[in-house]
Simulated assay, not measured.
Amino acid sequence: MMQIASTDDSVSLLRDGDTVMIGGSNGGHAVPETLLEALERRFQRQNFPQQLLTALYSRGAWESRQMRRLVVGESGLLKHVVCGALVDFAGNSACITS
């Protein structure tokens, strides 16, 4: 039986080291912003989960401001980010340094 879970309930299932696939489309459309916000809230409150492997399915996921905040601002949340291209809103190449 299919169940619908809240975003907070969904991110409560994540454990350290899990892989999270984040989709979207060019222009940042269809990116699960509320899910990313719930993930950020949980990490800020509990410092958990840590060291996630995040796979960005499309360039659009990187164009999400929320995704950028998670990648750049939450030290320890993400271990690796795997994607095809990182570009900013103007279409310029972007770079993440640690």
Rank of each mutant, 00 (worst) to 15 (best):
82 V>Y: 11
11 V>R: 03
49 P>E: 09
34 T>P: 03
36 L>H: 03
66 Q>R: 11
58 S>C: 09
92 N>H: 14
74 E>N: 11
56 L>N: 02
10 S>E: 08
62 W>N: 02
93 S>G: 13
94 A>I: 07
75 S>A: 14
15 R>I: 04
35 L>V: 04
35 L>R: 00
56 L>F: 15
28 G>R: 01
25 S>N: 04
59 R>E: 15
50 Q>F: 04
13 L>T: 12
30 A>H: 10
28 G>F: 00
64 S>L: 04
57 Y>V: 06
88 D>W: 04
55 A>D: 09
7 T>W: 12
81 V>L: 14
44 Q>W: 05
81 V>G: 01
62 W>C: 01
81 V>M: 06
52 L>P: 00
88 D>L: 03
14 L>E: 02
92 N>Q: 15
70 L>S: 04
96 I>Q: 07
25 S>E: 10
82 V>Q: 11
89 F>V: 08
58 S>F: 06
20 V>M: 07
11 V>C: 08
48 F>N: 12
65 R>T: 08
94 A>S: 15
49 P>Y: 07
79 K>S: 13
71 V>L: 15
83 C>M: 12
30 A>P: 00
1 M>P: 07
86 L>Y: 05
10 S>M: 13
40 E>C: 07
41 R>V: 05
29 H>D: 10
36 L>K: 02
3 Q>K: 12
21 M>F: 15
26 N>A: 14
50 Q>E: 13
64 S>V: 00
66 Q>L: 07
61 A>T: 13
